[in-house]
Amino acid sequence: MLIAEELFLLLRRDDGKPESASAQRGYGLAAAVITDLVLAERVTLSDDKDPRMTVLVPGPPGHPVLDAAMARLEQRDGKKLSSLVTDRKLALERPVATALAEAGVIRIEEKRALGLVAERYPVLEPEPERRVREQLRTVLMGGEPRPEDATLLAILQGLGVAGKVLEAEKGTLGRRDLKRRIEEVSTEVKAGEAVKKAVDAMNAALITAAVVPAVVAGGSSG
């Protein structure tokens, strides 16, 4: 699964409702899909403190979620990561939900009562999320992380929901110890420098976006 798909499942309960009403899920999904494309070597990030994104290989990668993200990133080639994370057109919740529904993992329940009852995504097949959670539990307890694990943990921490979402997986880790372990994980990833840089940059951008809600204006120039 894509990191964006794994994050989508982590941020929602089995009944399809959000784990946290306050979490800026759009920021997280944007960060996840950009990292998916960094891992796929379709885009790269500069070495600046607020990195600029450069498209390496234009055109659709062949997955509907990545295709939609790539089309938007081609329009915003050269923009700063901070503006991309808060770009509403990269908060691809519905395309991610559609992909998971087509795979039989969730069901999409449309809005009801003239939109007063929000769209929900109840889980049909819990095994994919169970595998993700077990992997994150292993990593938090000292196991070797994959780039995907480091990205998910960094995004959850950046959104301020790591403790809540990983209530069972964190074991006896308190808030400070969990934060420290997540920071360690980003340094332990055995991956290319571009991936490590992406994880660190995403975490910084998410924290900034979550703390300064004024930057929510998606699509602002970078």
Results as ranks from 00 to 15, higher is better:
N203V: 02
S46Y: 02
A205W: 00
R12A: 09
A71W: 00
N203H: 15
E119N: 13
R112F: 08
L173C: 10
P64R: 12
E5I: 03
K179I: 00
D36V: 07
L124F: 08
K179M: 01
K197D: 05
E144I: 07
S83E: 09
T98L: 13
R112H: 13
D77A: 13
D47I: 04
V189K: 03
A205M: 06
A198P: 08
R12V: 00
E74V: 11
V199R: 00
V161R: 02
G174W: 06
Y27A: 13
A71I: 02
L140F: 03
V212T: 14
L136K: 09
V105Y: 07
A214D: 10
A150N: 06
L152W: 01
L7R: 12
P61M: 09
R131S: 11
L81G: 11
K49Q: 15
K17M: 12
G28Q: 06
G160Q: 09
L206H: 12
K170A: 12
V185T: 04
D50N: 15
K79Q: 13
E184R: 11
R52C: 09
M53S: 00
D47W: 05
T187K: 11
T172Y: 07
E144A: 11
S22D: 12
A103Q: 14
T98G: 00
E167G: 02
I182L: 04
L178A: 00
E6V: 02
L206I: 09
E167P: 05
L156K: 11
V211H: 14
P64W: 01
K79C: 01
M202R: 12
R146S: 14
H63G: 03
P213C: 08
R72M: 09
R25K: 09
L10Q: 10
R120V: 09
A118I: 01
V189M: 04
L9Y: 01
Q157I: 00
P147K: 03
L152V: 03
L152K: 03
A31C: 10
R181P: 08
E119R: 15
T44W: 04
G16W: 10
R146M: 08
E134V: 12
T35M: 07
E110R: 15
G192P: 04
D36E: 07
R175G: 01
L136N: 12
L100E: 03
D177I: 01
R176N: 13
S83W: 06
E183L: 13
A71T: 13
Q135C: 06
G218Y: 08
V43T: 04
M202E: 07
R76T: 00
R88E: 14
A168I: 02
K179G: 04
P60Y: 06
A217T: 12
R94I: 01
G59V: 05
K111N: 09
A201V: 07
R120C: 06
G28M: 06
R25L: 05
A217N: 09
H63W: 04
Y121E: 08
D36M: 01
S221F: 10
K197W: 03
A23T: 09
G104N: 05
G218E: 10
T187L: 05
P145E: 05
I182E: 02
V96G: 04
P58C: 05
L10P: 07
G115L: 06
E110Q: 15
E93L: 11
L66V: 00
